[in-house]
Amino acid sequence: MNSKSQAGNAFSFSWWHETVIGVLLLVVLLVAGWLVPGFLKPHSQLLLSRHLWEFAILALGMTLVILTGGIDLSVGSTMGLSAVVFGCVQTSTGSLVAASLSCLATGLCCGAVNGGLISQLRLHPLIVTLATFAAYRGIAEGWSQGNSYSRFGTNFSSLARGSWFGVPLPGVIFCVMAIGFAVFLSNTPNGRFLKAIGHNERAAKFSGIAVERIRFWLYATSGLLAGLASLIYVARFDTAKADVGKGFELDVITAVVLGGTSISGGRGNILGTLLGLLLIHETRLFVSRYWRSDELQWIVIGSLLILAVLAYQLIARKPRS
């Protein structure tokens, strides 16, 4: 609520959040490069970037969802279900293409179910995706009976582990998509409608925007991206199982809101999300490689999220009193 009513009061410079996150990212990189030998080497950075791509692809969809003031908690579970479908189809037909297509289709269907419930029944996205969060994961577990499918061949796993002129293939896919999403958001009517819905849904509706249709396709897209992320995950680990993507939803939301997308909607962009993703990724790597402590990683990421948003509030907003 605050972010909307206060948006007009902010300094005329509208990139405060990206600046804050960018500076933080630089600080982390410098400190890490100083303390951890070889941290900044392009080779190791590129190699370890493969921890990032699934999150990054999910984050694109999540940015749009959060822009409209919604939320999608079911992306991790959608990944699990898509992975299981992939495994089932691959083992029964032996065709990787059919399996990949059905994996993407499953993601799309899961997203469409979310979108349908949200737009047709007018349910709150948090409620719907909280339910499907449990349901999709559960269906994946029940269907696969907890078994894992693996060994899809080295050709397939090299899709995620291999590189293309030194850049990992999923990274290339992500970059293309990120540019596409950024252009969509700033240069097409539909992209601008998303922000309008987030700002003031009623006004958007009255000005003739097909809010419900847009919302349906939005969640469907989020599901499709979860299917794609699942495909990359499966290729990276050469294993498809019902627990694929467990806990991803919160990490993705963390990255998106850290990147400056307002959780109440209406504000945010792809660049911010990209910076948020990188900040979390580099911080994780730094903590993990310097202190060797997984629990510390949790503490740092959690505090970083609060601190970054707090810092932004302090710098960019005038005090209300």
Binding site: W291, L296, L307, Q313, R320, S321
Partner: peptide, 29 residues
């Protein structure tokens, strides 16, 4: 008037991170 409180809060978080980090690094070493 709220600003000092915000700063205090952020300093508190920063100190707690640093405290944990220090604690843990000493443990690891």
């Amino acid at each position: 008037m709220h600003r000092p409180i915000c700063w205090l809060a952020s300093i508190a978080i920063a100190v707690s991170i640093f405290g944990c980090a220090k604690h843990d690094s000493s443990q690891t070493t």
